[in-house]
Amino acid sequence: MNSSAGPHFKTYLLILLMVIFGPLGNVLLGKGMKRIGPVNLQAAEALDLLSRVLTSGTIWLGIASLITFFVAYMLVLSWADYSYVQPASSVAYGMVALLAHFVLREVVTPMRWMGVVIICLGVVVVGQTPPRTTEPT
């Protein structure tokens, strides 16, 4: 494994992009879907629902954010372990709670905030393990 700062820097940079654009995408999708209304498991409504989803600007902004997240995710997965990247990016849950509270005005209870802090603690523990454990192919 390369012990220089390079691989770690680009790993952290891409995880930062994931942490920003993943939550932003989810919040935008949530806002868009709330406007569209509850989804039922009825085939008759599927086409109408799909057309409303595909004509929503908020949904498309959310999709653009998630594509940015996904590109960063795929790039980082080309050298770092999945079982490292997935937990390390979980700080995004804190971002989601913050955005949901301040942007969407959702009620986030104290217990839920505590959960977010515990998640971040878990992220710190995970972040102290090496990003790669398998040999390059």
Binding site: G115, I118, G122, V126
Partner: peptide
């Protein structure tokens, strides 16, 4: 252990519904 702690946090988030 980190994954486990994250999961405990998730449980708190769910319980704080």
């Amino acid at each position: 252990m980190g994954v486990l702690i994250v999961c405990v946090g998730v449980a708190f988030v769910i319980m704080g519904r």
